[in-house]
Design a protein around this nucleic acid. Structure first.
Lengths: 206, 206
DNA sequence: TAGATTGTTAATCGATTAACAATC
DNA sequence: TAGATTGTTAATCGATTAACAATC
């Protein structure tokens, strides 16, 4: 299949969660306008996304939720699962780690890293914290593909380079520092400060 | 001035931070291509954004950083500052609160809220934690305009309604629950799960 | 059937990029 | 001047929405 548009990928992730909820409550089929309403979207948008992933309902009785979830799983998830590291165990890193663990999913946090001797060796939700100097070793040993970067800004660039060096394939960057590490690594940035400033601006001007 | 495009607003927030860093290091002027490089953008993009906000350099000697920062401040910030509440003091709420406080800025977290009796009354970075039942009272008393929503999913909808009821103008929603609260309130969603699933997909397919 | 739903094409909207004249 | 930089228009790209024929 062709690579999907970014926005469609984002919505697939949201569809999946909403659909699983429906399944849990015993629902078996869902109309495009119902799914749309759950996520504040339009029905056309839903149908267009499903077109992209080649799913169709055959009858006009709504989509088979189970089948649709399975299709989304096959698109989003790697068959063998994907191993993740959290790098930087300050407040945010700790919050993210506890947020993700326990969720049954094919995305697994398998190691966390810090530089502080007081933090190294501790367990976070049962996951051992290693010294950042062991990054390369652990990435290879545990087959880690993605890093969640939650270090302080002053070491962000250096740590990103270490991650590149270690052979990571993707980074979710929560630092406010733009990373310049080339095309081979997929980087998704999230900047809390920008987010809140955006809300502030549109509250003022809309 | 007309309302700016979303993406331009986001970048203005990033420009500001990058430019302040430049100022701190003694730089007074900056070319569009230099600023672009700092943020992994193109020079045209920078110039187009500045066109939107009506800034021009007069000479071809780069932009006056100080003047540009002042202009961005006047666009993004409310003159009197903006008061913010964090609602839900779990790991994420705590992390966000400590992340924001201490930063000198016109965005101030002035209250935090929880439902847990063990948490209520505690101080987070010097900010008192109130019972969610006092939301409306405190929002009025402290003139709170924006809420950062970090409650567990099962109470997200109810809490969002409480926030609406309390007269909040904007919400930064960190729960995975889509909010249906109408047009009057500006809602910005951030979904960590979607973000990481997106990275996973593009690592696999790009 | 009539009404609701779907899949898809065409049109529109928003954002980025290419192109280039004007300026220092 | 010649080269670098800027501001802006036109073209392109990506995403959403409108329109509608086909289906149950």
């Amino acid at each position: 299949m062709k690579v999907l548009p970014e926005k469609t990928v984002e919505r697939l992730s949201e569809y999946r969660r909403a659909l699983i909820k429906c399944l849990d409550s015993g629902q078996t089929h869902i109309y495009s306008h119902q799914l749309a309403k759950l996520l504040n979207l339009t029905a056309v948008q839903v149908r267009r996304d499903l077109m992209f992933i080649g799913y169709s309902s055959l009858q006009r009785k709504g989509y088979d939720i189970k089948a649709l979830v399975d299709l989304i799983v096959s698109i989003l998830d790697a068959k063998e699962g994907l191993n993740i590291a959290v790098v930087g165990m300050g407040n945010l890193g700790t919050a993210i780690t506890s947020y993700f663990t326990g969720k049954r999913s094919r995305l697994n946090i398998v190691a966390v890293f810090d530089i502080d001797q007081k933090t190294i060796g501790k367990a976070f939700n049962g996951i051992a914290c290693y010294n950042i100097s062991e990054l390369k070793k652990m990435v290879q040993e545990k087959n880690i593909k993605i890093a969640i970067l939650t270090v302080p800004p002053n070491v962000a660039t250096q740590t990103a380079n270490d991650l590149k060096e270690a052979g990571i394939a993707g980074i979710l960057n929560f630092t406010t520092v733009p990373l310049h590490i080339g095309e081979q690594i997929y980087v998704e940035d999230y900047d809390m400060v920008t987010s809140i400033e955006k809300v502030a601006y549109f509250v003022k001007n809309k």
